[in-house]
Nucleic acid binder design. Sequence first.
DNA 1: CTTCATAGATTACATATGTAATCAATCGCG
DNA 2: CGCGATTGATTACATATGTAATCTATGAAG
Lengths: 137, 137
Amino acid sequence: MKAPPNTQSNIRASISDAEWQVMDAIWSTPSAAAAAEVIASLQARTDWSPRTIKTMLNRLVKKGVLHYQADGRRYLYRAAVTREKCVRVQGRSFLDRVFGGQAGAMLAHFAKHEKLSKKDIEELKSILEQKSSAAHE
Amino acid sequence: MKAPPNTQSNIRASISDAEWQVMDAIWSTPSAAAAAEVIASLQARTDWSPRTIKTMLNRLVKKGVLHYQADGRRYLYRAAVTREKCVRVQGRSFLDRVFGGQAGAMLAHFAKHEKLSKKDIEELKSILEQKSSAAHE
DNA sequence: CTTCATAGATTACATATGTAATCAATCGCG
DNA sequence: CGCGATTGATTACATATGTAATCTATGAAG
């Protein structure tokens, strides 16, 4: 049950709540972003001090999920992992934690309890169609 | 962005990863469970020491998600919140965190990336049917 | 050149979490 | 009755996380 010590290739270093928001800002920036840009972007949605955001950037770099390249005396940051990859990792961890890995149960849960637009429903149905036709017999 | 200090009525005191497993053991016990039972149940699935499990029980009581009633010199624990309630809370937090609250996006994600049995798919479709017929125009 | 604003690096500190060990009371056993 | 086993209570300690402040180097302004 004990997590193995981090090996650098391992993307496992889990991204915390606050860190996720920073990554979100990075992910939604085309190409690379300077700290100042990340800060500006986040101050629109949080009340964090710039210091705090810099700390996050640092930690994310240490965790290996952010890379940077020097540009004069500042850094340009870019994600080292895709949002999709992180979403998959976080999603699976959540699924295991809360639903014991039962994807069906989870989907049923959210389908029941969350608001869905007609469009959401149509799209989901269509995904399910493909899924069932592609499924093994 | 700062979480307000815990008021007791607030179920918010979030259940950690390890704590969730303890709650799971409790939830799957009909009626109340003594610490020894919880320990036995968890040792089957983890490598935690009994000490550790007792610490969890304590913290969960402090957090208000577990209640106990004395039975001789031991305690019988019972959940103070339902699994469903906790699942909803955790689920919503995850949804907000990772999918910005977009339930449709999350469902689409898992529908695409997770394995689903025929049965899962059928059930989901049926939920979606009801949902769309019940939906406002 | 001196000074201030900035950028990144380092250090700080409280709370949460994982993981126990130690303490104190007590119940059953010999 | 005395003692070890067991139960809950208290304390411990490392790492993670939220949230910054301080230190150091340097480029821009005067």
